[in-house]
């Protein structure tokens, strides 16, 4: 698996449910970061030349290479806008999140 996915977490009910000391599975994510976004990136795949600059520079690593197209893991995108700002082809637009 390239990226960890959101995993359900069972809250401990007994002291023995806790790990011995502060240690836990690497890449274990009970929470997403989707709630952080005011704007969301929308990709214009026709304009995109797959240069991967957005893939390289995303602070959260949420841009995925998907068979020659870029895809965004919206569970963990925080909507910072770096991808849109850095895109040499202006192929990514930041659009207000709608509830």
């Amino acid at each position: 698996m390239d990226r960890p996915k959101k995993t359900e977490f069972t809250f401990p009910t007994h002291i023995n449910d806790y790990p011995t000391g502060p240690q836990y599975k690497a890449g274990y994510l009970p929470e997403t970061n989707a709630g952080w976004r005011t704007f969301r990136p929308v990709v214009d795949h026709d304009a995109c030349v797959y240069c991967l600059r957005c893939y390289l520079l995303c602070p959260d690593g949420t841009i995925i290479k998907d068979n020659g197209q870029i895809k965004i893991d919206m569970d963990y995108c925080k909507g910072c806008g770096v991808c849109a700002h850095e895109c040499p082809k202006d192929a990514i637009e930041m659009v207000k999140e709608q509830l």
Binding site: I15, P22, Q23, Y24, K25, A26, Y28
Partner: peptide, 21 residues
């Protein structure tokens, strides 16, 4: 078995780790 060690815990869990210790 890769692990993250020495994490921080919020008030919800910190007491439990200290109890365990």
């Amino acid at each position: 078995e890769p692990k993250n060690l020495g994490f921080s815990s919020k008030p919800d869990d910190n007491t439990e780790f200290k109890y365990q210790q």
